[in-house]
Write a protein that binds this DNA or RNA. Structure first.
Lengths: 213, 213
DNA sequence: GTTTTTTTATAACGGATGTTATAAATATGC
DNA sequence: GCATATTTATAACATCCGTTATAAAAAAAC
């Protein structure tokens, strides 16, 4: 019995696409990550994705739209990772450390080379003159703040924090810790040192250490 | 009585320079600040400084050397401002707030437009692929950490902090607060909100507020 | 005033940039 | 097999990029 292909729609009429848009976006992100938006010519994107410039334009519009898509996808992935780390019944300090560990796994590529945060390493540079990028950065930062604040609020309700603790202020310090790690990773800091920094920050933020120390 | 010109050396032989290298570097910095290193063509630098490309090359070498000089000068100025804020007999929380206020006065131009930190807004983007810029960023971050740590150490000696306080860890949070402010300023945050963030962070870092609240 | 020295302005250089026109290639529908 | 539809690869495009050659301009030295 000849089974249908897994795609729901019928095969389109013309020559089939030779690229996978999802995979291409991922590789484009990797390329922007290294040299930034202004610093990355479209040739490099074409080489990294294996797509020709016309295919890139057909798939994404233009360089700017492609970058915005990469930026949006990065926010989705990292915010999801943070939320997952903060969710669940883990103790507060453990949850925070998990969030920073998740971030570090983004900041260091699989080969171990430090590239830092995509947002802070590439979007922040464009944010002043590019309103769309600035808007994306501001919205993402707000989301991160909100996720941390919600977790601290929960912690206070659970009795993990003193009743007079300020969830908003603690969230700012938690975000700040994320930011400083992102910056330091791009400046060449070693992963172990950044983990240590995160641990020191978590210890101070939570009042008392959770694990060792 | 004909007084000598203030310059010590005798007038040089050829046609006199029409530019002031110091002022030009300042204007070049302002230009890089907005659109980053990769995003700023030399034409814009020439227009901002009023210098022709050959004069720029004679004065600074090339675009890369010019940027490095701007970066070095920025570090000098901001680190000096931080040190000055932290020096003296001011209470700890007041000294910290002064340091953040000094930073904010860099992050917002005289016309009030937000541009954030020059390092985080322009150098961090290049740091991954440019070893010289990365080195400058890393060194500057280390200095900032050190200045904060020294102040916290002094505070502990003076009894402003509990005897078991960890100056290194506190310095990391103080630096992180600086970094998060720098990022948010470039993402369009208002100055008053950033001042508020700084105040919240200082309150947490110092244990108890110094001024109001 | 002529020579020498340095800086200036103009324009050029080769190559890179983002984007698009053109035509060949590869699929479906009949 | 032929017409139709879509994507591909190649190359062109106008412009911009960082950098430098060239010659005029402006000062001191003699």
């Amino acid at each position: 019995m000849p089974r249908r292909k897994s795609e729901t729609a019928a095969a389109p009429r013309g020559r089939p696409r030779a690229y996978d848009a999802e995979a291409a976006l991922k590789q484009a992100t990797e390329t922007f990550w290294k040299t930034g938006y202004s610093g990355t010519p479209l040739d490099k994107i074409a080489a990294a994705t294996g797509m020709s410039p016309p295919s890139l334009y057909a798939a994404f519009g233009n360089k700017h739209a492609l970058y915005l898509e990469a930026l949006a996808r990065y926010w989705e992935m990292t915010l999801a990772a943070t939320r997952e780390a903060l969710a669940g019944d883990r103790p507060l300090a453990e949850a925070l450390m998990l969030a920073y560990e998740a971030a570090l796994s983004f900041y260091f590529s699989r080969k171990g080379s430090a590239r830092g945060c995509f947002v802070i390493g590439t979007a922040v540079a464009e944010a002043v003159e590019d309103a769309e990028i600035r808007k994306s950065v501001a919205a993402g930062l707000r989301m991160l703040d909100g996720d941390f604040e919600a977790r601290f609020r929960t912690a206070r309700e659970r009795g993990e924090l003193k009743q007079d603790a300020d969830p908003e202020a603690l969230a700012l310090l938690a975000s700040a810790t994320m930011h400083t790690i992102a910056i330091r990773a791009r400046a060449g800091a070693r992963r172990a040192d950044l983990r240590e920094i995160a641990h020191k920050a978590v210890t101070l933020i939570c009042g008392s250490p959770s694990g060792s120390h």
